[in-house]
Amino acid sequence: MIELLRQSGSSFAGDINNLILLVTVLAGFWLIVAEVVLFWLVWKFRKKPGVKAQYVTGERKEEMKWIHWPHNIILVCDVFIIFFAIKVWHHVKQELPPAQSTIRIIGQQWAWRFIMPGADNVLGTKDDIETVDELHVKVDTTYHYKLESVDVLHDFSVPQFRLKQDAIPGRIMTGWFKPTKVGHFDIQCAEICGIGHGIMMGKLFVDSAEEYDKWIASHTPAEATSH
């Protein structure tokens, strides 16, 4: 359903979509029931000449059940939602599947810096590729990201991936994603970070393996190749 508004392109995006669908169905059901009952009562018990209102205290057992039964069923719905919410959360944010590659993401007022490991796939070596506002990743590869900030809070958000994580100065936030769809997508900053917050966008390129290798080759720093 949410796919209609924003397509998804990561391994866990489907789980989040399904959770949103579950909540939509359960919460939507209760919303419709409550609204229909509300409007129906307003219509049914509109003021009519000569008809007096009833005296209902709502304190007798057979009256209370009209409140308690819905509330019990809502509790059951809540338990369902809690279960699936935690399941998805655990998968996306608590688990850390082994990395096939690791990148560094650095937020600053008002740009994203990315450090990719280069041809040797190891960070911190000479062939690391540093870019601004442009991130290249290989499709179907599990990435770990090390998210940092040099000044204020930022938030690395890729709606297509259903991924969002605040960047905090003084900390390195580790997380993961696995792109599943080739293409280029928006990277947003989703935490207000000053007057340039609205221009702090990056481009994410999910490349096929060949495209990715080509890009790496053409962007490897000169001093790394001359070695």
Binding site: I16, T24, L26, S157, R162
Partner: peptide, 25 residues
């Protein structure tokens, strides 16, 4: 009552941590 119900119900999306990853902010 009619409008607050909408606000209450949509809060469930945000309280469910897994869905909030997408909806946050």
């Amino acid at each position: 009552l009619a409008t607050f119900l909408v606000g209450g119900v949509t809060g469930i999306f945000l309280g469910a941590s897994g869905a909030d990853i997408y909806f946050h902010d």
